[in-house]
Design a protein around this nucleic acid. Structure first.
Lengths: 189, 189
DNA sequence: GTACGTAATCTAGCGTTGCTAGTTCTTCAA
DNA sequence: TTGAAGAACTAGCAACGCTAGATTACGTAC
């Protein structure tokens, strides 16, 4: 059995190399630079090999996105741990959210903007995606109103801030004030 | 001069036909179906003709987006006119915002997601884009805090709700509750 | 009315993309 | 040693954005 095990291990390693290469290229030159040919060259295999790992290009983006959600959840949980009270909990998580998105723009794009075919808000939703939502819900939790609604709205506000700031639709620089505004709004309810 | 005028008129008409075709195809089959070849076929001219009107494909998307912003501003202003008090003003505009995005998904995508090279939050920002922001600011206006910050945050929350709802990341159906949540937050500040 | 020069338009094709059919090579068990 | 099964490669298809160069249409001057 050890031969089969070795093969499986090598295959998994190669798959990881594909995902890592995709993420690296995307972060350096944008997702349009992530082509099958470029990835094949990077892992030193021919193009059809990639299709034995992933159904199509979107599936590669999806794999990067899943990895991103794991890292994202970790970042949010750590931020929540540094908080002292409810207000600072919301603030820390909000700033961690924006920081993550700004420091990993291509990763965030894979997670939220690019077509990946990932399922959300459904039964078949992958655990990585549910965990991210729960990490947000954790700091919203002690709320009088519906926690699900509050978390969804909190999430939407943060996602909107990310997208509008990154596309230059709102001013750079007033980020702290806007976050404070969101937190105040949430605390008032 | 009338010959030159006629030519200019016909040229402008053809440009409008390109924009209309792009929008129609995008709304029916997604932006990936909007190819230069397809547009050329639609207006019954060869492909290079399109490049005498627009620098590249992105410029066509941008033209659709500009048209979208005009229509968008009109919709927001009309919604604001139907309001009786501050709360209903925010609610009406918020619902009009979400309604517009959901009824014209491809148009909204051109306006906010696709690369168009449009300038925002700058001196050279086109009037159509500034007008949309002002229509939002109008209902936020009677606020104690910084109106710019409040408007940007309001906008971000609405944009986030659109994107998360459309990509299926938050539940369908609880839209009204989330809008109420946003409005409550804004009124509390 | 005719010839000419400019402007408008088209044909054809380049380089790149995602993806795949068909072939060759490698590996392992009998 | 040999033959089957699996793994990987070569080569190429159709479609994409975009453009150089040939061709046609048209307004103007004689």
């Amino acid at each position: 059995m050890s031969i089969a095990e070795r093969k499986g291990r090598q295959r998994a390693e190669r798959e990881q190399r594909i995902i890592a290469a995709a993420r690296l290229i995307a972060e350096g030159a944008g997702w349009s630079a992530v082509t099958i040919r470029r990835l094949a060259e990077e892992i030193e295999y021919s193009q059809p090999v990639l299709y034995s790992h992933f159904e199509n290009r979107d599936a590669i983006v999806a794999a990067v996105a899943i990895e991103g959600f794991r890292q994202f959840t970790t970042a949010l949980r750590q931020a929540a741990r540094e908080a002292t009270d409810r207000r600072s909990g919301l603030e820390c998580v909000a700033m961690a959210y924006l920081g993550f998105a700004m420091q990993n723009p291509a990763l965030y794009e894979a997670m939220f903007t690019l077509p990946t075919g990932l399922r959300f808000a459904e039964l078949e939703t992958r655990s990585e995606l549910k965990d991210a939502f729960r990490a947000l819900a954790a700091v919203v939790e002690p709320s009088k109103t519906d926690v699900a609604v509050a978390t969804e709205t909190f999430w939407a506000a943060l996602h909107g801030l990310v997208e509008l700031e990154r596309s230059g639709r709102i001013r750079r620089g007033a980020r702290d004030e806007r976050v404070a505004f969101v937190v105040d709004g949430l605390l008032g309810c």
